[in-house]
């Protein structure tokens, strides 16, 4: 059985920042690990009713937030069309 998670994609200058609110538990590990400090809390609520996250245009699409998310709730794609690291 494959389950589809609803996604919220935000188009930024250098990449596409996709968040899956049904997976985000609002732990904030990505907020702290972002090298550009461009991830902030969002109005969209995550799976436990806590705020999820969103990135702003400072994002360089490095994919660190995608890697450190324990729930795989973030997908970062560079604008070249390639999927971010891992």
């Amino acid at each position: 059985m494959t389950l589809e998670f609803q996604s919220k994609t935000k188009e930024l200058k250098k990449g596409l920042f996709t968040l899956f609110p049904g997976l985000c538990k609002g732990c904030g590990l990505c907020v702290e690990k972002c090298p550009k400090h461009c991830i902030a809390w969002s109005d969209i609520l995550g799976v436990y009713g806590t705020p999820s996250v969103e990135a702003n245009d400072e994002c360089i699409a490095c994919g660190i937030c995608q890697n450190v998310c324990p729930d795989c709730a973030i997908l970062v794609r560079k604008k070249t069309g390639k999927v971010g690291p891992n």
Partner: peptide, 14 residues
């Protein structure tokens, strides 16, 4: 789709 490893069982996530 979320970038999960192939071996993860998707229907038990989160």
């Amino acid at each position: 789709a979320p970038a999960m490893p192939r071996s993860w069982r998707v229907d038990t996530k989160p």
